[in-house]
């Protein structure tokens, strides 16, 4: 479904990605783990068109999207839930959700309402807070809102950027359970995470990113067992 080929990205003179390649198949949860500054978010932002690669290519359903502007990429069904939650703080939860449907034509009214219901079903807390400003939500609720909003855009491939960032462990559990639910209902997911422990538990396959290079890849369950990963990311000595 998504294929990244030898992607190189620079921030000015600084090379952030030294040629990474990865693949996401239909129906999978693929996770990209790595420590701070490894280039995880850079990868995701390049895929969604917010950054331009210096070289390499990105194929979505076989067609190159490396020069496609971000708003067109969303229309193709590749939707990102941005890092740091990226909700619109002065708008209500309801208005945030409406912006999720921004790329969908008005003729899909019925389908949009159904998707909204489905998203609110996944995140019942949001339903209680529809009229509240998004900026007054707790961190976990903001994360839920960002994900619900992305779901209403009807993604074929959902890009999640650090959904567990700065959240209490209990909320993280909830969020990851919902990620699995979203996937079970047919949405392919590319998950970028620092929390390797949780990410490897929900993902089918995983890539390990270290300073701009992919150093390991494979089935998530196998990686979780590998010594290097356990040492470096899972806190087992």
């Amino acid at each position: 479904m998504l294929e990244v080929r030898d992607l190189k990205v620079n921030y000015g003179a600084i090379k952030a990605l030294h040629g990474i390649s990865l693949r996401v198949n239909q129906g999978e949860i693929v996770t990209l783990i790595g420590s701070n500054g490894a280039g995880k978010s850079t990868t995701l932002r390049t895929i969604s068109g917010l950054l331009r690669p210096a070289s390499g290519d990105i194929l979505f359903e076989g067609a190159s999207i490396r020069a496609t502007p971000p708003h067109e990429i969303v229309r193709l069904g590749l939707v990102q839930s941005p890092e740091g939650r990226g909700v619109f703080p002065n708008m209500t939860v309801d208005e945030n959700l409406q912006l999720g449907a921004f790329v969908r034509p008005a003729s899909e009214r019925g389908a949009i309402a159904a998707d909204r219901e489905r998203a609110l079903g996944l995140f019942p807390r949001l339903r209680e807070r529809l009229k509240q400003s998004a900026g007054t939500l707790s961190g976990g609720e903001q994360q839920m809102l960002a994900m619900a909003r992305a779901l209403i855009a009807k993604p074929r491939l959902l890009l999640l950027d650090e959904p567990s960032l700065g959240l209490a462990p209990q909320i993280v559990q909830t969020i990851f359970k919902i990620i699995r639910d979203i996937n079970a209902s047919g949405t392919t997911i590319l998950l970028v995470e620092q929390n390797a422990n949780m990410a490897l538990r929900v993902a089918h396959r995983a890539y390990v990113l270290e300073v701009g290079r992919i150093t390991m890849e494979g089935a998530a369950a196998e990686l979780a067992q590998s010594d290097e990963v356990r040492k470096a990311y899972l806190g087992h000595g």
Partner: peptide, 15 residues
């Protein structure tokens, strides 16, 4: 309004 609120998120929503 979404541009004012968060330009990146706005792009991510397809604006």
């Amino acid at each position: 309004l979404s541009i004012r609120e968060d330009e990146i998120a706005s792009e991510a929503m397809g604006v």
